[in-house]
Design a binder for these strands. Structure first.
Lengths: 107, 107
DNA sequence: TTAATTCATAGCCAAAGAGTTATAAATGAT
DNA sequence: ATCATTTATAACTCTTTGGCTATGAATTAA
């Protein structure tokens, strides 16, 4: 239920998968057929990619008749945003230290 | 020189590699030997991972005598932060539309 | 000079991954 | 009831990847 960063990174590492997710983010809901039209791969390939994205918590599928409408899952990127933020923050912390050092040296 | 998101995602998709990068972010510079001690894999494996991280622009190596000091590259995560931000923003846009719709329905 | 240390590269292997075609399962249309 | 459509799964192939050992290249120590 709670998607760890590992699944997210792995899921988004593949360009085809990332393109699918981007499309769902930008254009909203879409059926497998519509997604297959845009992607450069076969329908089974798209279905497999969607399954992986779903497993990672990035998308959800809503069955309606014989077709499945997929959409991006809100908040799914939060762990990624957290992680990148943390890494950046620590770098800035060291940068602040350097600034402090330079300031002290300046006096 | 400008690291595209694909290289970044691919580089950070591997847990060992992500752990190396995290360590460099949190603890600053470290030699290959020191990094190998922490990682659960052989020294050649660490070297290969570092090469990939370097290729992605995530780290840099400073040769000093027979050892190489690696450190996290500042700003390297910017494309990732951009991308996640964009994806999130579009979702929020749709959310705002929904709010507008609900507000209009309310009247 | 010789020996030891540190890192990178080469070469190999097993596992994972992304793609395909074929087909099953479910639904909708005739 | 039959046929068509839509999606998911199965079975397979091929490539990529992450790991290892062995070794080379460069530097430092004895």
């Amino acid at each position: 239920m709670k998607p760890n960063p590992d699944l997210l990174f792995k899921a988004l590492a593949d360009p085809t998968r990332r393109a699918l997710f981007e499309r769902l983010c930008l254009d909203g809901e879409a059926t497998v057929g519509a997604l297959t039209a845009g992607a450069g791969v076969s329908q089974p390939a798209v279905s497999k990619h969607l399954a992986i994205l779903k497993q990672a918590g990035l998308v959800q599928g809503r069955g309606e008749g014989r077709q499945t409408h997929y959409s991006a899952q809100q908040g799914a990127l939060a762990p990624l945003i957290d992680w990148t933020g943390r890494m950046n923050r620590f770098w800035e912390a060291r940068f602040d230290d350097l600034e402090d050092l330079l300031k002290r040296m300046d006096q």
